[in-house]
């Protein structure tokens, strides 16, 4: 049984039909990437999984349990964490408070909380120096680190990452992908949405290509990298 499974999911924004019968699955321990051009519906897919949007039709299952009509905070409780598009750091909370909010479901007095915090600081040493800085005053790259760190603080089984490399300097993009690989090797299942298709496919096990709300291609990451259509449309290769 797949850890996450979407079956024939239709999501709307009012009258706009954003996901048109999307199906995908993510197995435990995998990195799966979702690529597609702007407006294809990648973020909508993640929002639907997290419960911020409710599909009008279709099923979402996590660990076998239907979650398509479960409110977002309960989905987080089940073990899904999202680092959303645009980072969405709480601007007037400090870095430490942002991380505490990530661990909202856990006791911040417990030793495990401190271990989690330590792990985040080891992944992103820069955050350690900035614990009492307001989230809104961090640089874009630091906010991205905080968004990922905050998602990790809920101790999830599965991490949804929406364009974690967006707006980062090339060195940092490299670093972020390294970190995703590290987190995954420690047992985390990852669903990765990326514009940076080449690098995403470089670390993923499998990938899906999304076009106007529909999956048009799904394959092993390696096969997708060699796929002609993918190379033309998403990798900028001729």
């Amino acid at each position: 049984m797949a850890l996450l499974e979407l079956h024939n999911v239709h999501t709307y924004y009012g009258k706009i039909h954003a996901l048109k019968g999307l199906s995908l699955r993510v197995e435990k321990g995998e990195i799966v990437t979702l690529i597609g051009s702007n407006g294809a519906g990648k973020s909508t897919t993640l929002r639907t999984i997290s419960g911020l949007l409710t599909p009008r039709q279709g099923e979402v299952r996590f660990g076998g349990k239907r979650i398509d009509h479960t409110p977002p905070h309960e989905i987080t409780q089940l073990g899904v964490a999202q680092s959303p598009e645009g980072r969405r750091i709480f601007p007037r909370l400090t870095v430490l408070e942002n991380l505490e909010m990530g661990a909202y479901l856990h006791n911040t007095r417990s030793p495990t909380y401190h271990e989690d915090l330590e792990r985040v600081f080891q992944l992103f040493p820069r955050l350690r120096e900035r614990t009492s800085q307001k989230g809104g005053t961090l640089s874009g790259g630091e906010q991205q680190m905080l968004a990922i760190g905050r998602a990790l603080m809920s101790r999830p089984q599965m991490l949804l990452l929406d364009e974690p490399s967006m707006g980062l300097a090339p060195v940092l993009v490299e670093q972020i992908f390294e970190i995703i690989k590290t987190i995954n090797s420690q047992g985390m299942t990852v669903l990765l949405v990326e514009q940076n298709a080449l690098q995403a496919l470089g670390i993923a096990n499998r990938g899906y290509v999304l076009q106007s709300g529909e999956i048009v291609l799904e394959d092993d990451a390696k096969a997708l990298r060699e796929n002609e259509m993918v190379q033309k449309a998403y990798l900028g290769l001729e």
Partner: peptide, 21 residues
């Protein structure tokens, strides 16, 4: 913790719900 959750909710409601609030 509750006060921080209030502030987080005030600053960004959907993201607060992603935190499990």
């Amino acid at each position: 913790r509750l006060g921080k959750a209030i502030r987080a909710t005030a600053q960004d409601m959907p993201t607060a719900s992603l935190m499990g609030i």
